[in-house]
């Protein structure tokens, strides 16, 4: 297990690595993004000690909003121990000295890649998502000049035709992650590569969601209590992944997003919670329950 306390703040860098002017620019762009839900705001995205495309968008958003009293949680595909999460956490702690946690409920800022935690979050928390491709229309239009025009005129017909042809060809919509969703009935967003399972969590949430794309230099946001509707036909509705009849081999939970791994007896399939923190928590709670029962 990682020893969170072993990481200490190193001197020689400004608080949270970025200089104050850069942080201020990112905060200003973030405010604009919150004011226009779902609109992609361009920002400077300067160089960082990690390469673009490895979470630099989310990292910069976190760096610009973090304060000494914050408690940080960083996850990669639902796991606190993923290599991307570990490196980002180390960089942030070394340059800020903030406390970190694996516990979703205890964190004030959660930076994440590809997942939204299973545990419900509150209005005191901010979720920062790392985004590889902020443009939902990239599926159907290569030119960024054209997609900007399409957004400004709310012309999403080509995305709709894409979905229509998906159904014609496959009988259902085959987009797994990055499901295009309409924010506040106005802007179409790419909710980052979260699975469909997580998309409904964005809708009318308590929590502020900030999306940072470092390579593409865009910030966008879903503020609390904002509608986020996945595109769906009136008669063919959006649906999340189906895990019915399957349960996590570690915690036994049957209503979380699960990873499928080969490793069972005879090379069979196993299912494990993708959100490791919740899985651990549930196991710990069950352990407690056992000791209580044993007394």
């Amino acid at each position: 297990m990682l020893n969170l306390k072993a990481i200490e703040r190193k001197g020689g860098y400004n608080f949270a690595f970025l200089d104050e002017n850069t942080k201020r620019e990112i905060r200003r762009k973030t405010l604009k993004a919150v004011a226009i839900p779902g609109y992609q705001v361009p920002f400077a995205s300067p160089e960082l000690p990690i390469a673009r495309g490895w979470g630099t968008g989310g990292l910069q958003v976190t760096m610009s909003i973090i304060g000494p009293d914050d408690t940080l949680k960083v996850i990669d595909q639902g796991c606190d121990g993923g290599v991307n999460a570990v490196n980002i956490r180390k960089l942030l702690v070394k340059t800020t000295g903030v406390g970190t946690t694996f516990d979703t409920a205890a964190a004030s800022i959660i930076q994440t890649r590809h997942r939204i935690p299973e545990e419900p979050m509150s209005g005191r928390q901010i979720l920062v998502l790392q985004v590889p491709i902020p443009e939902p229309l990239r599926f159907v239009e290569a030119s960024m000049a054209k997609t900007r025009e399409m957004h400004s005129e709310m012309d999403y017909s080509r995305m709709w035709v894409f979905l229509y042809e998906n159904i014609v060809k496959w009988g259902e919509i085959t987009i797994g992650a990055r499901y295009p969703s309409l924010v506040n009935k106005r802007y179409l967003i790419d909710p980052s590569p979260i699975p469909r399972w997580d998309v409904p969590k964005l809708h009318m949430a308590e929590t502020l969601y900030l999306f940072g794309a470092g390579r593409e230099k865009r910030i966008y946001a879903v503020p609390p209590h904002t509608s986020v509707e996945p595109l769906e036909f009136e008669d063919i509705r959006f649906r999340v992944e189906d895990f019915s009849g399957k349960a996590c081999v570690r915690c036994g939970s049957d209503h979380t997003y699960m990873n499928e791994i080969y490793g069972g007896p005879g090379g069979g399939k196993l299912y494990v919670c993708s959100d490791s923190s919740r899985c651990d928590k549930l196991r710990a709670q069950r352990g407690e329950a056992k000791t209580h029962a044993g007394k």
């Binding site: 017909s157 080509r158 008669d235």
Partner: peptide, 13 residues
């Protein structure tokens, strides 16, 4: 379908 979708018909059938 594109023309229908631009004219706000969102029923696949």
């Amino acid at each position: 379908a594109e023309k229908l979708l631009t004219a706000d018909v969102y029923n696949y059938a």
